[in-house]
């Protein structure tokens, strides 16, 4: 710790003072362990020991009190946005794509089979099977001769398929993702720099080149969170960039794609439309594909269809997916 010159005479005293403090409280647990013990998340034995220590240690009590008051500070919006981006990323990685759920908007996600997989329902069904089996067994014994007993016991598994299914554990609960359309699974668009980048790299020295260079640098910075999968932050940065450079097709395009990842479909439609109108030939196809996806998400399949038809007919990387998308749309009434 660097001290002001007039504090130098205090430093030797400080050294002995702090050394004394450290020695005196050398048995104090690490602050993180103390907090975990106070939050009852440590195993019982060390947890109770540490809480007993804190009870008798004025320094630890003080620290716990101070940290609690500091931790009560509200979460800054910047941090909240960062965590949100992580949540979105994890939902995508988990395989339950936001698209899957957004297709169910407006109604509860409770499935008809859900009540059958509650523990009480399974237990009740199992009991029903046992009771039915016993009844059958007793009934058969009553009506059949003793020599038929072996057959009667063999008839135990002969319960109705419905009861059998209910009693068994849920081996294959229909996954919501089975209803997902495969062609419209959202994939991240690779980052491509604008054509003006070539001019910058060639070392142009005029005003246009300077402008392009500045725009390119800002685009690179704005695309950092996009590359990292932090779409919430990417949306913020690209929105600012799109305002500053309204003719930037890339800003609009990556903004639209980020919004698709954030399920802001309607906003994505606007930005991707704009990107498509501004884009050169290379980016135009990509913009058309993502725009078709955005239209599909907002239920405007009539607008998605002509885009897909054009993409499907062109020999491009997106053609196979566009054709598959068209095929899927043809099944939609």
């Amino acid at each position: 710790m660097s001290l002001d010159p007039d504090e130098q005479d205090f430093s030797s005293d400080l050294e002995s003072l702090t050394a004394g403090l450290r020695q005196r409280f050398s048995r104090c647990p690490d602050p993180s362990v103390i907090q975990a013990a106070m939050g009852f998340v440590l195993p019982d034995v060390p947890g109770a020991q540490i809480r007993a220590h804190v009870d008798g240690c004025p320094m630890c009590r003080l620290l716990v009190r101070d940290l609690e008051s500091l931790d009560d500070a509200p979460l800054p919006e910047r941090d909240a946005n960062r965590i949100w981006a992580r949540v979105v990323q994890k939902t995508i990685e988990s395989g339950i794509t936001p698209k899957t759920l957004s297709s169910q908007r407006g109604r509860a996600v409770t499935k008809w089979w859900t009540p059958f997989f509650r523990p009480w329902a399974i237990a009740a069904a199992a009991m029903a099977v046992i009771v039915l089996a016993i009844s059958l067994s007793v009934g058969i014994r009553l009506v059949r001769s003793p020599r038929d007993n072996s057959e009667a016991s063999n008839s135990l598994p002969d319960v109705s398929p419905r009861e059998n299914t209910a009693a068994s554990p849920p081996q294959s609960i229909p996954s919501p993702s089975t209803s997902t359309t495969t062609a419209f699974i959202l994939e991240k668009a690779p980052v491509r720099l604008p054509a003006s980048a070539a001019m910058v790299w060639r070392g142009g020295a005029d005003a246009d080149s300077d402008r392009a260079s500045a725009e390119l640098k800002e685009l690179e910075i704005a695309l950092e969170p996009y590359r990292a999968g932090n779409y919430a932050e990417a949306e913020l940065r690209l929105t600012r960039l799109a305002k500053k450079y309204p003719r930037s097709a890339e800003a609009r395009f990556y903004l639209g794609v980020s919004q698709l990842f954030l399920n802001k479909d309607q906003e994505a439609v606007g930005n991707l439309k704009e990107a498509r109108s501004l884009a050169d030939r290379t980016l135009s196809g990509q913009a058309a594909w993502y725009l078709a996806m955005a239209y599909h998400r907002v239920g405007q399949n009539d607008l998605a269809r002509p885009l897909l038809e054009k993409l499907c007919g062109a020999a491009s990387k997106t053609s196979p997916r566009a054709c598959a998308g068209l095929d899927e749309l043809s099944k939609v009434p």
Binding site: Q35, D71, W84, S102, Q104, L262
Partner: peptide, 24 residues
């Protein structure tokens, strides 16, 4: 469910959840 509903729920509770997570 629309993602917007989920995000609204996140915005409502993120603060309390994070503070508790930090504490423990």
């Amino acid at each position: 469910m629309h993602m917007a509903d989920f995000e609204a729920t996140y915005r409502t509770h993120a603060d309390a959840v994070f503070r508790y997570a930090l504490r423990v």
